[in-house]
């Protein structure tokens, strides 16, 4: 059973990491962010700023836009088995649907993480050139792990499963709308999830790294019980909650695929 999961994971990783649109969208968005940020962006942090804050700020900035690309390039991973015509074969193999779904999820998340991590490491190299602090690389990895990765894992679960219910293009539109509403629309304007623990943009973890409120974390608004003061505990709680939420759609994936294959 474990080796089946590992096999699916390995090959889903290969297929996803070979997808050109993953690289084009991630690198494209990252370059856009690096170049077009305003003078309050991390590029303009004063000398002497801690490495944790520098990389935390970069990670948060990337985390605003990169996951949109991630969601788009992950949206076909489960449904494409039906489109390509591989679903019947997969269903005829002595591998449980649970192992397939888990392996596809883990493999495609890992592959999608590769360009994301590289973007942060390249950024760390750029910062290293004028700050000369080697710990920047360590913080780049840490910032990736706590800011970008939980959001990616959360986005991936919905991106894989939702297109089993709605069409992939419709999902992409809804997803982009949700992303701005749930992450960047200030809670003072309209009721939104922005600034809550459920924000996959990494507001709480980034606040913890930066030692100050990163974006809207903890701002008063709708669902105030989800808006504690930012800090280490709140950051951890945010990551755990996102992981729990991500497991919900995945639990439905197996039955949804089976229903599709058998109708």
């Amino acid at each position: 059973m474990r080796s089946r999961f590992a096999a699916v994971c390995r090959y889903e990783f290969r297929m996803q990491v070979r997808k050109r649109s993953l690289w084009v969208s991630t690198v494209g968005l990252a370059v856009l962010i690096a170049v077009a940020q305003g003078d309050r962006g991390p590029r303009h942090l004063p000398a002497g700023t801690s490495a944790a804050e520098v990389m935390g700020s970069w990670a948060l900035l990337f985390s605003m836009l990169l996951p949109i690309g991630f969601g788009m390039v992950l949206a076909d991973r489960l449904v494409r088995d039906h489109r390509i015509g591989a679903a019947s074969l997969l269903a005829s193999l002595p591998t449980r649907p649970g192992a397939l779904v888990a392996g596809k999820y883990a493999g495609s998340v890992a592959a999608t993480a590769v360009p994301g991590l590289l973007v942060l490491l390249v950024t760390a190299a750029g910062e290293f050139a004028h700050r000369g602090d080697l710990t920047l690389f360590g913080w780049a990895v840490a910032a990736f792990a706590v800011v970008l990765l939980p959001g990616l894992a959360f986005v991936a679960a919905f991106a894989l499963v939702c297109p089993l219910v709605v069409s992939a293009p419709l999902f992409r539109v809804l997803f982009a709308g949700y992303w701005f509403w749930g992450n960047m629309l200030g809670p003072a304007y309209l009721p939104s999830l922005t600034g809550t623990l459920l924000t996959p943009i990494g507001d709480y973890p980034a606040s913890w790294l930066m030692g100050e409120k990163a974006l809207y974390a903890g701002d008063s608004g709708w669902l105030s019980f989800l808006r504690p003061e930012p800090g280490g505990g709140a950051a951890l709680l945010s990551v755990v909650l996102l992981a729990v939420l991500a497991s919900l759609p995945l639990a439905f994936a197996g039955p949804l695929i089976a229903r599709r294959t058998s109708s």
């Binding site: 096999a7 290969r14 489109r83």
Partner: peptide, 19 residues
């Protein structure tokens, strides 16, 4: 039957073999 376009023949057979 549809095959994964981004795998090689060897890889596809290896994948199915593992499954």
């Amino acid at each position: 039957l549809g095959l994964y376009p981004d795998l090689t023949t060897q890889e596809f057979l290896d994948y199915i073999g593992l499954l």
